[in-house]
């Protein structure tokens, strides 16, 4: 082992202790019954449990809706922020990032309180509002970065070749900013699938998401089933990440010049 690679040792230990070991524990628990014997019943239970499957489908649905909402609101916002003519100061960018400085739980509680004050019924609408509010900066920032570092000469070249401003956007700016959108999707979609605090506070537990079920099982000492659910979620998230990651890499390569 040479000198430089020994610097990696603390990180290696950290990774083993706090990432690899917990993952192995999850795997172990999910394949055991309450008395510690090997079983696959935890896994098969999920696929036969209509409630769990329904909650899972709902989680994915909410996550997709939230992600789309974030793109819809976040992309134009990022575009405005990245435009030197429309946004002359860096302060506005900070303002968009500012909410992240406050703990998400506190923000969510405050949002719930606001809804109560305004007499708005808690439900899916308020859930999506809260999620979007929490995760929007994670969508705006990568898109903003991508747009900001994009060479302006691409847009000029497109105009030069006869593209109207809307054609420039559709045929050049948008495709070239996709790596930023993918980063945003990764940072919004994944956490929304597993969130439980937001749904708890903003729907009064009326809507249960996948994260909520895991939390409930663990809290009720059903560690093995909870671990199995976690494992299933990890696998599914892992697969989507790899799918998107592949796409993102191809796009990112395209974005380099």
């Amino acid at each position: 082992m040479n000198k430089r690679s020994s610097w990696a040792l603390p990180y290696f230990i950290f990774l083993v202790l706090f990432v690899v070991l917990p993952l192995l524990l999850i795997l172990m628990y999910s394949l055991q019954d309450a008395s510690g014997n090997f079983t696959l019943s935890n896994i098969t239970k999920f696929f036969t449990d209509k409630d769990a499957l329904g909650t899972f489908a709902l989680s994915i649905e909410v996550a997709i809706e939230n992600t789309l909402l974030c793109i819809l609101i976040g992309y134009p916002a990022a575009w405005i922020l990245a435009d030197n003519k429309l946004n002359r100061s860096a302060v506005t960018v900070v303002l968009f990032i500012l909410p992240m400085w406050i703990n998400a739980l506190m923000r969510t509680l405050a949002t719930a309180e606001l809804f109560n004050m305004a007499g708005i019924q808690l439900g899916k609408g308020t859930l999506l509002f809260g999620m979007c509010y929490d995760y929007l900066p994670f969508m705006i920032y990568p898109i903003y970065n991508q747009l900001k570092k994009m060479d302006k000469s691409y847009a000029e070249a497109a105009q030069d070749l006869g593209a109207t401003p809307s054609e420039v956007f559709r045929k050049v700016t948008l495709p070239l900013s996709m790596p930023g959108v993918w980063s945003g999707v990764m940072m919004v979609f994944m956490p929304t699938v597993s969130t439980f605090a937001i749904s708890e506070f903003l729907t009064n537990n009326k809507i249960k998401l996948f994260g909520t079920i895991i939390q409930e099982n663990i809290n009720n000492s059903m560690w093995n089933y909870g671990a199995a659910l976690s494992l299933i979620m990890l696998v599914i998230i892992g697969i989507t990440t790899m799918l998107q990651g592949g796409e993102k890499r191809a796009e990112a390569e395209g974005g380099l010049i």
Binding site: D151, S153, Y154, E156, P175, L176, I257
Partner: peptide, 13 residues
């Protein structure tokens, strides 16, 4: 009229 840009500005996508 059309322009040849200094750093080419070929569309990378």
């Amino acid at each position: 009229l059309n322009t040849v840009f200094q750093r080419y500005a070929l569309f990378p996508h």
